[in-house]
């Protein structure tokens, strides 16, 4: 493996200034499950590896008691999210995704911030968060700013992060009552698999009926970056949510997807599975909303 110098940063400021003093020859590392694979294969060749693991404050999950927003630190591992009762009960769409990322050994160290920053089209972590209208907080030498997660990705491996900026936190707005979400990672194996297609659906219903007031349909591996299928979302708003309307939304989402052939699967099959998964996840949303009522 290529030789490099390993630097530990204890604070965000330290990390950013270390990065800036070494420029493009530096790279951040957290869980390392992506970075290490890339270094081993020679895809990246950093001279300096800056460890973020000890930048303590970004490794917790919390709800802001005043606004009800969910804050997930960039250094939170997938395993921590998977095991969190808060996530499992209140954000099952996130739980759906994180429990299927890599394997237990990978989830124990791989971070949600790393999953987003890595910006692969198949990032399972991104899709549910986009469906939840999440935004990310970014820290750099110019201070802190926020970007909606849907605008964070610019292409495969490309994000809006510049010049040593760090994704510090993911923020999920408080969801209205009668909101249900579900994510399906569609692949061949239970572990160590990238999805053929990733489908996240989030639906908010009217107070006393199954009429949809808000819909989000987010797809992974359907384009160079995670996308939302706005036409399918618009179609659902104002409609009664049932098998038929979800079937139609699935078809619309499939048309909007820009899937392609790859070693893991062919475009036509992916497109059909988008339609199938959108309907299935929509029905799971309904089920989950009804369970909320039952509680």
């Amino acid at each position: 493996m290529k030789k490099f110098k390993y630097l530990i940063s204890k604070t965000l400021d330290e990390a950013v200034s270390l990065y800036q003093s070494h420029g493009d020859s530096a790279m951040y590392v957290a869980g390392g499950t992506d970075v290490m694979v890339k270094i081993k294969s020679g895809k990246v060749t950093p001279d300096y590896l800056i460890s973020l693991t000890h930048v303590g404050r970004n490794s917790e999950i919390r709800i802001n008691p005043e606004t009800g927003t969910l804050h997930v630190g960039g250094l939170v591992t997938h395993r921590t999210l998977e095991m969190s009762p808060l996530i499992k009960l209140q954000y099952p769409i996130i739980h759906d995704a994180v429990q299927r990322i890599g394997s237990t050994q990978v989830r124990n160290v791989a971070t949600i911030g790393g999953n987003l920053v890595n910006a692969v089209p198949s990032a399972d972590g991104a899709i549910p968060l986009i469906a939840l209208d999440a935004y990310v907080n970014i820290y750099g030498s110019a201070g802190e700013h926020s970007v909606d997660l849907i605008h964070f990705f610019e292409g495969p491996g490309q994000t809006v992060l510049m010049n040593g900026e760090i994704l510090t936190e993911i923020v999920v707005p408080k969801q209205p009552p009668r909101t249900g979400g579900a994510y399906q990672k569609f692949g061949r194996r239970a572990a160590m698999e990238l999805p053929l297609i990733g489908v996240g659906v989030l639906i908010t219903l009217e107070e006393d009926s199954n009429r949809c007031v808000r819909a989000r349909i987010a797809l992974g591996v359907a384009a160079p970056t995670p996308i939302r299928t706005l036409g399918a979302e618009r179609y659902l708003v104002g409609k009664e949510i049932n098998e038929d309307t979800l079937n139609e939304a699935g078809k619309l989402a499939a048309e909007e997807s820009r899937v392609r052939d790859s070693i893991r699967g062919l475009a036509w099959y992916r497109r059909e599975m988008v339609a199938v998964s959108v309907q299935r996840m929509g029905l799971t949303c309904l089920q989950r909303i009804n369970q909320l009522k039952a509680k």
Binding site: G32, T33, M36, V37, Q105, V106, N108, V109
Partner: peptide, 15 residues
Amino acid sequence: MDGKPIRSCLTLALE
């Protein structure tokens, strides 16, 4: 590592 299974091939010794 601290009771949790991890991949030692992807973990730097220093980490």
